[in-house]
Amino acid sequence: MENIRIDPTDRSPLVDFDFETGRLRMEGESYPEDSAAFFGPLLTAVRAWLTEHPAQPATVDVAMSYFNSSSAKALMNLFKVLEEAAAQGRPVIVNWHYVTDDDTMEEFGEDFALDFNAATFRMCPADPAP
């Protein structure tokens, strides 16, 4: 499989999925005009990677500063697939990065964390930029 690298835009986040290491990184803002079109291919690739590499650990780093409701749904769909993989024995870690003074992103992370039982969901606070 070929790695996925999508550069950020005004409306969509950076997406960097290194299949060899099993590491997916998403960061920035996400409010694309068509979330399904943006996230659909990524979700398809993640599912394919999980099937083709059933024992490889997965690490996901999410550092969003803003996302709309359709992006939240897409993230939830991604997290559901990862949770299912973890429930089948695959090591899965999701690192939710947020700035300590961003209560909204912290609360979103806490809400997402509630849906994880098999995968590890880590809250990763960072100090605001000077």
Rank of each mutant, 00 (worst) to 15 (best):
M1P: 14
E2L: 05
I4N: 03
R5I: 04
D7C: 11
P8D: 15
P8F: 07
T9Q: 11
T9V: 12
D10K: 10
S12M: 04
V15Q: 09
V15G: 09
D16Q: 09
D16S: 13
D16K: 11
D18K: 08
E20R: 13
E20Q: 13
G22K: 08
R25M: 15
G28Q: 01
E29T: 06
S30P: 04
S30C: 05
S30G: 05
Y31N: 07
Y31D: 10
E33F: 03
D34P: 04
S35D: 11
A36R: 10
A36M: 02
A36V: 02
F38P: 00
F39N: 05
G40H: 01
L42Q: 04
L42G: 12
L42M: 08
L43V: 11
L43S: 08
T44H: 09
T44N: 09
A45Y: 04
A45T: 08
V46Q: 14
V46C: 14
V46F: 07
R47C: 10
W49G: 09
W49I: 08
T51R: 15
E52F: 15
H53T: 13
H53A: 13
H53D: 07
H53P: 07
A55N: 14
A55W: 10
A58P: 01
A58Q: 15
D61C: 07
V62T: 05
V62R: 02
A63I: 00
M64R: 05
S65R: 06
S65P: 01
Y66N: 03
N68W: 11
S69M: 07
S70I: 04
S70T: 13
S70D: 06
S71H: 02
A72T: 13
L75C: 04
N77T: 14
L78T: 08
F79P: 00
F79M: 04
K80R: 13
L82G: 03
E83Q: 08
E84R: 11
E84Q: 07
A85S: 14
Q88L: 12
Q88G: 12
G89Q: 10
G89P: 08
G89E: 06
V92T: 03
V94H: 01
N95Y: 06
H97S: 01
H97A: 00
V99C: 12
D101F: 06
T104Y: 03
T104S: 04
M105G: 00
M105P: 00
E106I: 02
E107P: 00
E107V: 05
F108Q: 01
G109A: 02
G109Y: 00
A113E: 04
L114F: 12
L114A: 14
D115Q: 07
F116V: 02
A118C: 05
A118D: 05
A119W: 07
T120E: 01
T120S: 01
F121R: 07
R122L: 10
R122C: 12
M123F: 00
C124V: 06
C124I: 06
C124A: 08
P125L: 04
A126P: 11
D127V: 02
P130N: 10
